[in-house]
Computed example of a mutant assay.
Amino acid sequence: MNLPTQVKIVEVGPRDGLQNEKEDVPAEVKIALVDRLSAAGFANIEAAAFVSPKWVPQMATSRQVMDGIARKPGVIYSALTPNLQGFEAALAARADEVVIFGSASEAFSQRNINCSIAESIARFEPVARAAKEHGIRLRGSISTAFGCPYQGEVPLAAVSDVVARMRDLGCDEIDIADTIGVATPRHAQAVMAAAIAAFPIERLSGHFHDTYGQALANIYASLELGIAIFHSSVAGLGGCPYAKGATGNVATEDVLYMLNGLGIDTGIDLDQVVDAGAYISQFLGRKGASRAGNALLAKRAP
Rank of each mutant, 00 (worst) to 15 (best):
P185C: 01
E88R: 14
P4F: 06
I264Q: 10
I229R: 07
G41V: 07
A221N: 11
L37M: 02
G226F: 00
L169W: 06
V234Y: 00
V56R: 00
H231A: 05
K244L: 14
Y150N: 05
L237V: 00
P149K: 07
Q58W: 03
F230R: 04
I136Q: 05
I264V: 15
Q282L: 06
Q151S: 13
K132P: 01
S160M: 12
H207G: 08
R203V: 00
F208V: 01
G263Q: 08
L284R: 12
E125P: 03
T81D: 12
C240V: 06
A49Y: 08
D271I: 02
I227D: 02
S143P: 03
S52K: 02
S62M: 08
R165C: 00
E119C: 14
G285D: 11
T252L: 12
N294V: 11
G140R: 03
S290R: 02
V191G: 00
E119T: 13
I76K: 10
Q64D: 11
R291E: 10
F50T: 15
A27Y: 07
V12C: 07
R111P: 01
L138I: 10
L84F: 05
V7P: 09
L223D: 01
R36M: 07
D265Q: 11
S78K: 12
M258H: 04
E133K: 15
F199Q: 03
A128Q: 04
E23I: 07
L204Y: 00
G238L: 06
V154E: 02
T211H: 10
G17K: 11
F283K: 03
L296Q: 04
P26R: 09
S78A: 12
T81N: 01
G135N: 06
A177E: 05
I219R: 14
V273E: 00
V34K: 04
N114G: 13
F87T: 02
I174D: 14
A43M: 05
A235V: 03
A93Q: 06
I219C: 07
V99H: 05
T184V: 14
A292R: 06
Q85V: 09
A177T: 13
Q272G: 13
D275K: 07
D271P: 03
L33C: 01
L216Q: 12
Y212L: 08
G238V: 09
A92S: 08
A92K: 15
A188D: 05
V10Y: 06
R94F: 12
Y77T: 01
L156A: 14
M258D: 06
H187F: 15
F50C: 09
G147T: 04
Y242A: 09
T144I: 10
R291Y: 13
A27K: 05
